[in-house]
């Protein structure tokens, strides 16, 4: 399939592909196939097919605009080749200078969310107030109701912007928790060795 694929006029999806393209240009957040189908007043399956055509046309190396599947939807972004030029034009306030504390908090909210500030504090062992405030301000996490059991503490979860900034199709793209934490067993063994000495 190296031959350039044109949107041939006789292709029945041609008109729909143009509509999808237009919708993606005006949207400022990823659109799901369902969103697109509703806006285009067309069948979701045909929209998926049309997205295939649009994706073929707007792919890395072929166009300055790239169609990507991100945060559970479809969106246009700039090609990576244009990144430097883009950097001179716009700021990236959402991810600039993210501290270690903020990243750890973000990881906890991404994996355990919706979770409360006390949950984050319990795992990190230090207060998470400023990290949570910073992530809220950046729009990477948002409030998600209250935990009625824990005295009505506000719960947080990551936003679609988080998935977009980190280039994730969905949260399931995060590495499995079981695959993280190498060396944990070693620590456990050492702790148990110390405990045995104390009981002896």
């Amino acid at each position: 399939m190296d031959a350039p694929l044109r949107l041939i006029a006789s292709n029945p999806l041609d008109q729909l592909a143009k509509t999808v393209e237009a919708l993606l240009v005006v949207a400022s957040a990823p659109l799901t196939a369902q969103d697109l189908a509703e806006a285009a007043a067309d069948d979701p399956e045909r929209v998926e097919a049309a997205l295939g055509l649009v994706g073929e046309r707007y792919r890395e190396g072929r166009s300055g605009i790239v169609l990507e599947h991100v945060a559970g939807g479809w969106a246009f972004r700039a090609s990576r080749e244009a990144a430097e030029a883009c950097a001179r034009l716009i700021e990236k306030p959402a991810q600039r200078n993210l501290s270690q504390a903020a990243l750890e908090t973000l990881a906890i909210v991404a994996y355990l969310g919706p979770c409360t500030r006390p949950d984050v504090t319990r795992i990190r062992g230090v207060a998470a107030d400023s990290a949570v405030a910073s992530l809220l301000e950046r729009g990477l996490i948002s409030e998600a109701g209250r935990d009625e059991e824990a005295g009505g503490a506000i719960r947080y979860r990551t936003t679609p912007l988080f998935e977009r900034v980190f280039g994730l199709e969905s949260l399931s793209e995060l590495p499995r928790l079981d695959d993280l934490g190498a060396g944990v067993d070693e620590i456990r063994d050492r702790l148990h060795a110390v405990a045995e000495k104390r009981t002896a």
């Binding site: 990507e68 969106a75 246009f76 972004r77 700039a78 990576r80 244009a82 990144a83 430097e84 883009c86 950097a87 716009i90 990236k92 991810q95 993210l98 270690q100 990243l103 750890e104 973000l106 990881a107 906890i108 991404a110 994996y111 795992i123 990190r124 062992g125 977009r164 900034v165 980190f166 280039g167 994730l168 995060l174 590495p175 928790l177 993280l180 934490g181 190498a182 060396g183 944990v184 620590i187 456990r188 702790l191 148990h192």
Partner: peptide
């Protein structure tokens, strides 16, 4: 050990996120 393991996992997840940010840093939208 359980608490340490829980924290260590999250710390590594944070590290993964940081790497991801570097790799995906040239995506502008």
């Amino acid at each position: 050990a359980r608490r340490l393991a829980e924290y260590r996992r999250m710390k590594e997840a944070a590290g993964w996120l940081r790497e991801r940010l570097e790799v995906e840093g040239d995506r502008y939208f």
